[in-house]
């Protein structure tokens, strides 16, 4: 059988670049595809290579052209980009994705995003559509209309089977996301992007953001190994 796959990916501020000064958080930094959503895209592409079919991407929120093109360059056939006019929380996002998610055999999400990190949108979409929900998947196979997956639920590892259509979320260890070539990046400009602006209400609200910052001494110890060791031994003796 061929597979019709929908992969959700979120465009987020690069968390490694977020600047903290005093009690201020500066989120106005370059955006990227949320780390493990790249694993979701990769899983979709690998399944398409194995079973044939199509992989469509869907992204709710920031609609940065360059980042969407990166997802297309990785190999998505098409991207649906939905921009809510006001803040959309996990449930609002799940509702928006559900409306576009009918008719697919498999919906793939990343285990967690690097901004909110609720790990919720995938399971919520599954519930709204009434599909089986299989989270934290690190290995997946399709067998006669069924999905067989290994879930990493530390400290448990579970093997499960469910009838398609299903929703899965993949872990960061499920695969290694491919890096698009220059040619793929050039060609991605020709691929289709369906852009929509929508209204949706959220039932949660971000009240406040403060840095999670613990000041440190930041002393660098360089020099000869014996001297470094001597210093650290003294520091340890003073603190244990």
């Amino acid at each position: 059988m061929t597979l019709n796959i929908l992969v959700a990916f979120k465009i987020v501020p690069d968390e490694t670049l977020i600047k903290i000064s005093g009690d201020k958080v500066d989120l106005n930094v370059p955006v990227k595809i949320s780390t493990y959503d790249k694993n979701a895209i990769e899983e979709g592409l690998e399944l398409r290579e194995k079973y044939g079919g199509k992989v469509i991407g869907i992204s709710v929120g920031v609609n940065d052209r360059k980042t969407i093109r990166e997802a297309l360059a990785m190999g998505l056939d098409e991207v649906i980009s939905i921009t809510p006019k006001t803040y959309a929380d996990a449930l609002a996002t799940a509702k928006l994705i559900s409306e576009e998610a009918k008719g697919y055999d498999l919906l793939i999400f990343g285990e967690s995003s690097t901004d909110g990190g609720d790990s919720a949108v995938g399971p919520m979409v599954g519930e709204i559509l009434g599909y089986p929900v299989i989270t934290y998947v690190r290995r997946v196979e399709i067998q006669d209309g069924f999905l067989v997956a290994e879930r990493n639920l530390t400290p448990e590892v579970e093997e499960v089977k469910a009838k398609l259509p299903c929703v899965i979320s993949v872990t960061g260890e499920a695969n290694t996301p491919r890096i698009p070539t220059l040619k793929q990046i050039m060609e991605s400009g020709k691929k289709k992007v369906v852009a929509k602006e929508v209204e949706i209400a959220s039932s949660s609200r971000l009240v406040n953001l403060t840095p999670y910052f613990v000041p440190r001494k930041k002393v660098i110890i360089e020099g000869k190994l014996e001297e470094q060791v001597q210093k650290v031994v003294e520091i340890l003796r003073g603190n244990l």
């Binding site: 990190g117 403060t210 999670y212």
Partner: peptide, 15 residues
């Protein structure tokens, strides 16, 4: 809760 990979602490209000 924590947000943005643990860079910030967030206060969230839920209905």
């Amino acid at each position: 809760r924590l947000g943005f990979g643990g860079v910030v602490k967030a206060t969230v209000e839920l209905s």
